[in-house]
Amino acid sequence: MNNKVLNNRAWLLVLPMLVLVAFSAIIPLMTVVNYSVQDVLGPNARFFTGTEWFHSILNDSALRDAFVRQILFSLTILAIQVPLGIGIALIMPKRGWQASAVLILITLPLLIPWNVVGSIWQIFTRGDIGLMGYGLRELGINYNITRNSGDAWATSIGMDVWHWTPLVAMLCYSGLRSIPEAYYQAARIDRASKWAIFRYIQLPKLTNVLVIAVLLRFMHSFMIYAEHFVLTGGGPGSSTTFLSQSLATMAIGQQDLGPSAAFSIIYFLVILLVSWVFYTTIMHMQKDKNPHGGA
């Protein structure tokens, strides 16, 4: 009896949290769901449309292209940032003032506001005053991000790598620091080569942080907006228009509330799906790690 009463009272403690979550997440989300099944023409003129918006969004070739570009972009930056991050972490000094100095230097890009990053790169790549743009032109390379979509792509990726590789590097650095010295000593005694040490000690011990790094970067790159909007505006043409920018254009630029609501929901579900896949992978890997975990 006593236990029952205690338990019921405990539910009350959850209530404030529930109200908070309702305001911050559930109600806005429901509003979006509400819009996604209606055609809103004016304050008092709305029609129920069912799944029509979803159909049209899924069949919209421009959005599909944006989605493909998005995936391509995310995979490319991962393929560059993860190995690069590990590499930087491996050559970073391990102790002393050098370690602190390098850490601070590396963290700098992470401290810059996103739209400022976009502006920096925008200026940096300008042919007339930007160091890189001017330099490349002087070298005889025809470089122009507002005309050449290849240049725009490469610069977008370069900017993201510059901005976010430090995060991967820092995660890997902390992962490497947590490997006990005894492992390195044992490996030396076993006469393991540098490569073998990396392959059999450092990399296995890094898997956990790497999973987190990949998850963070993947989701993050799905949501990029400010930097690229400032840098290329999605152009030339729509060659660097990613999902978030398509959505913003649709919702704010064109005021198409219904389709953009449907789009938001699909967007949300995609990110949810990706997160779920990562979450289960991590859980699975950890179960693999300690089979006696239940004991």
């Binding site: 006990p180 005894a182 492992y183 059999y200 296995p204």
Partner: peptide, 12 residues
Amino acid sequence: AQVFQFPVIYDT
């Protein structure tokens, strides 16, 4: 050869 306080094994 040396055996350490905590087992050092290559776990992959």
